[in-house]
Write a protein that binds this DNA or RNA. Structure first.
Lengths: 111, 111
DNA sequence: TGTATATTTGACAAGTTTTGTCAAGATAAA
DNA sequence: TTTATCTTGACAAAACTTGTCAAATATACA
């Protein structure tokens, strides 16, 4: 079964912030979630504070463990990655627009 | 002095393709440009064919050596990087849009 | 064709970054 | 203060990057 989830309210928080909120909402300790993820709580602490970025596999696992919508979390993570790429770049915003066009172009090319 | 260069025609080619074209236009051999860059021609070959991605420093150097507009090449390189990030991602295009909003949001937050 | 020149490929090494562990330090709650 | 939670930084191992080199392939042209 495939399900389509329309995401209406875009979450501009960082992935770490979202994870921390959700974890606390669930009343889980850093140590507890970390154990489920099979990582040291030091790492989870760093992930939540944005000092490190989760691998995609970890992210998916986190979404599952916290009962979150996977798409929302992946979108946050991916967009964080893009923002990080261009954050200190003079032409970052322009590059974003060009990237959109390139994606479009590549899609057309394929079909 | 600051100069503003308006880029009218967006180049959707990859950075490597642009470099190769420009190099051939100038009649330079892979070996020759590589020597100026102080790298092995094997690497330049890989950069041009997109097998590897240039470091930003290399890119700037290449732009200078080929007498190219630096902004154009940096834009191509940055957008390639973004495209690479999201190319195999289910929600890539959506993530791009969110990244734009995040950038906007971060800018506002700063000011 | 054969030979020279140019480019590509892949194995490898060195350097860097990432991803994790651990223990000590800081913070917060009781 | 004591106890539990979280943060920080030093360190190690693994993964990725960036380069060299030599052999294989492709291109050009006498």
């Amino acid at each position: 079964m495939t399900s389509f989830v329309k995401i209406k309210y875009i979450n501009l928080k960082t992935t770490g912030e979202i994870i921390r909120e959700k974890r606390e909402e669930k009343g889980l300790l850093l140590r507890e979630l970390a154990a489920s993820l099979k990582i040291d709580s030091a790492i989870l602490s760093k992930l939540e504070r944005g000092e490190r970025k989760p691998a995609k596999e970890q992210l998916i696992k986190i979404a599952k463990l916290l009962g979150m919508n996977k798409k929302e979390l992946v979108l946050s993570w991916l967009s964080d990655k893009i923002v990080f790429d261009i954050a200190d770049e003079e032409y970052g915003v322009e590059a974003l627009k060009i990237a959109e066009k390139k994606i479009e172009y590549l899609k057309k090319k394929k079909s």
